[in-house]
Every structure is written in C-alpha cells, then in structure tokens.
Design a protein around this nucleic acid. Structure first.
Ligand SMILES: [Mn+2]
Ligand SMILES: [Mn+2]
Length: 311
DNA sequence: GAAAACA
DNA sequence: TGTTTTCAACGCTAG
DNA sequence: CTAGCG
C-alpha cells in the first residue's frame, strides 16, 4: 500500500437539480452532498472491497440496473481491481478508496452501494461475516427479536462480539469482524449452522427457508451473503426507497425502543452520527477466529440433537 | 448515464 | 448533427 | 440443469 498522497481530482457534477426521490424532492445534488459528508466515516468500512452499484438514472420511479463491472468510461483515477469470476474470466471491479469516488458514483445516479465481505489482496477470505435478518413485510419487531437472540447466542455461547445496523430497507444486519483465515465456504457453513440452531430454538418465528411461500410469516435468516462475489449493503449507503433511508450502524442499546428499519435517512443521519459517532468504530479493531467458535458450536449442536429414535 | 447505432 | 437504441449481475439453494 | 431469491 503506497503512502504517497493521491493527487487531487475534480469531479464534474451533471444535473444537480434532477429529482431522484420524488416523494421528498431529494435531488442528485443532495445525494452527492450526502456521500461527500458521510465519506470520512463510511470509507474505512468499504475500503478495498469490490462493489456493486445500484443505479437509478431516471430516479426512484425510473428503471434501474445493477452494475458490477467498472466500465471503461469511468475516469482512470477510479480504483479498479481485477476479479476472477467463479465460472471463468476476469472483470475489473470498482473499489472505493477515496471520497471523490463516492461523489463520482453519486453523480452516476448510483443510489446504493453493496460491497463484498472480503477485500482486495485476500478476496477469497472474508474479513466480515454478515447475518442478514430478513423479516416479512411489516415485521420489523421480528428483526429486533432475532437480533437480540442471535446476539445472545454469539456473545454468551460462541464468544463473538457482533455489531448491528439497520439496512434502511426491511431488516437488520449483524456483522462480525473475522481474522481472514477461513474461506467463504467455511464462513458460510458456520453461519448456516448458527442459523439452524436459532431456528431450532425459535421455529415459530425464524426460518432458513429460501422460498418465500415456505416462510409463513417467519423471519428469514439469510446466510448466503457470505459467499465469493456476493455482497451486502454497505454501512452508510443510501437505499432506493421513498425517504432516502440509510443503512445505519447502531449501538446495541438503540435496539430497544422506537427503532425502525428506515429510521435513519439522508436527512437525519448526521444528527445520529453527531450524537453517537460511528457505532462500528470498534469493529475495525476486532478480529474473531472461526476456530474457537466452531468447536463451541459443535458442542451446542450435539446437545440439541434429538434423542435417537427407535423403530 | 453514456456509448453505439442510426437517420 | 441530432435522435434513438442499447447496455449496464451473479452465486447459493432446493428440487 | 433450472427457478427462485436476494
Ligand atoms: Mn436483508
Ligand atoms: Mn437477504
């Protein structure tokens, strides 16, 4: 990693008055200003991670698309990382490593940024595990319940310290910093087994069923984010929803009262940040090993295994 | 949003 | 030249 | 392999 100063770059802004969120009349200029201002706290979380862009050039109501590859027409100062596709071939992916990139992407009408759970240089080895808590429509209280219970399992029984954020959509994410020694398959398998313990304990409220029809009003514990080339919404990313909600890292005590998945938006995020600072600051200094948690989980599962049935 | 294709 | 068309993902899971 | 899903 070079310590040389990056040269200053100017980002040309086009159509700053174009309304991207018609409900609140939030313009592209306001989106750009949001990302410019949040950059100092957002950058450390996304640095080095390949991203996926969710672009809405005609605003929230217009057609959108997901962009994975860094196009040639992006300026040369945008960092690109060559990435192997699982099924052969290499593509260049954008990696955010400076505030100007966030500004440039906002000008491209990229409302939402998703990131890999690994970073350039060790793309096969995630440094973050994400439990994606997906409640049914209107079931945010289920997400709060699941977050509390999952936190208790992780801290009291597996000796890991998870961090929580609103996704700005419907649910919550729990994130755990990893030491990068386990590959995606091992991390995902671990997450899946933790999820299955949770489902066993609360079968009426939680499920690991991918099929919507089989969830039956239960919260989906989505562990498939923990895979090579897969992504999760970035902390402090805006979501493409009315009100311009923001994926917002929280302190655990905030999980108590009047929380909602879309509580924080581009219009009130900085008040939260002024009050709390970055609640995930400490995440960046922790590094949990899967080895210890693995063996504790195995014991747990053995205890929960049903008694052998006799014919 | 921007490049390519078209009139 | 101005206008219209085209393009912009991918990996896991269950069956 | 495909459909569903995120
Ligand atoms: Mn989710
Ligand atoms: Mn999900």
């Amino acid at each position: 990693m070079s310590k040389r100063e990056k040269t200053v770059v100017e980002v040309e802004i086009t159509h700053p008055d174009k309304v991207l969120f018609p409900g609140e009349k939030i313009t592209k200029g306001q989106l750009i200003e949001y990302y410019r201002r949040v950059a100092p706290v957002m950058l450390p979380h996304v640095e080095g991670r390949p991203i996926t862009m969710h672009r809405y050039p005609r605003g929230l109501r217009g057609t959108s698309f997901i962009q994975q590859e860094a196009p040639e027409y992006f300026p040369a100062w945008i960092r690109r990382e060559p990435v192997e596709k699982r099924e052969g071939g290499i593509t260049d992916r954008v990696v955010v490593d400076r505030p100007e990139t966030l500004v440039y992407l906002a000008n491209q009408a990229c409302l939402t940024i998703h990131t890999w759970l690994s970073r350039a240089g060790r793309l096969e080895f995630p440094d973050r595990l994400v439990f994606d808590l997906d409640p049914p429509e209107g079931g945010f209280s289920l997400a709060v319940f699941a977050a509390r219970e999952l936190r208790r399992l992780l801290t009291e029984e597996l000796e890991m310290l998870p961090f929580v954020m609103t996704t700005g959509s419907r649910g919550l994410h729990l994130a755990i910093p990893l030491d990068g020694r386990a590959d995606f398959d091992a991390v995902r398998e671990f997450a899946r087994e933790v999820a299955e313990v949770m489902v066993q304990r609360h079968p009426d409220r939680l499920t690991a069923e991918v099929r919507l029809a089989k969830r039956g009003g239960r919260l989906f514990l989505d562990t498939a984010r923990n895979a090579y080339g897969q992504t999760a919404v970035a902390p402090y990313s805006v979501r493409a929803k009315p009100g311009a909600p923001v994926a917002t890292p929280l302190e655990w005590k905030e999980l108590e009262a009047d929380l909602e998945a879309q509580k924080y938006t581009v219009n009130n995020l900085f008040a939260h940040l002024d009050r709390r600072g970055d609640p995930w600051e400490a995440l960046r200094q922790q590094r949990f090993s899967l080895v210890v948690a693995r063996s504790k989980l195995d014991r747990l599962r053995a205890d929960f295994r049903p008694e052998p049935l006799f014919a």
